[in-house]
Simulated assay, not measured.
Amino acid sequence: MARADSGSSDTPEREIRLVKNPDGQWTARDLRVGVTAQGKSRDVALDNLDAVIEAVEGDGGRSPTDEEIRDLGADPEVAQSQSDELPDVLQ
């Protein structure tokens, strides 16, 4: 288990757990934020974890383009017009 400080005096310390999986992949988990990422190496797993944390806490991430939605096999018009309510099975 590694402990790392984010470097900013107003943010709490980050506690990160690194685990080498049986398949050779690495898993990195930020215990404060409660998110996990994987990678082929420790460095990649940590980079992926930073990207997930940025998406969750900051301005990371973006809405998918119509082309990306089509690549997933969905119609962008239908996908973007659906309500934000959870389906009954998830409520």
Rank of each mutant, 00 (worst) to 15 (best):
G34A: 06
V56S: 06
P64E: 14
G24I: 02
G7E: 09
G73C: 08
P12L: 00
T65W: 08
A55D: 14
L49V: 11
D10P: 07
E15F: 07
M1N: 01
Q80F: 03
V44S: 05
S8W: 13
D43I: 10
T11G: 04
V78N: 12
I53M: 01
I69M: 05
S41G: 03
P64K: 01
N21L: 08
V33D: 06
T36G: 02
G7I: 05
V52E: 14
G34I: 04
P87T: 14
N48A: 13
P22K: 11
S9C: 10
P22L: 02
I16N: 12
S81V: 07
T27W: 06
L46V: 09
R42A: 05
R62Q: 02
E57L: 05
T36R: 10
L72A: 04
D10L: 10
D23A: 09
S8R: 15
D50K: 14
L86F: 05
I69R: 06
Q25A: 12
R70K: 00
A74Y: 15
E54G: 13
P12N: 04
V78D: 09
L18Y: 03
S41P: 08
D75C: 05
R29T: 15
T65M: 03
E57N: 02
K40N: 10
T65S: 14
D88Y: 08
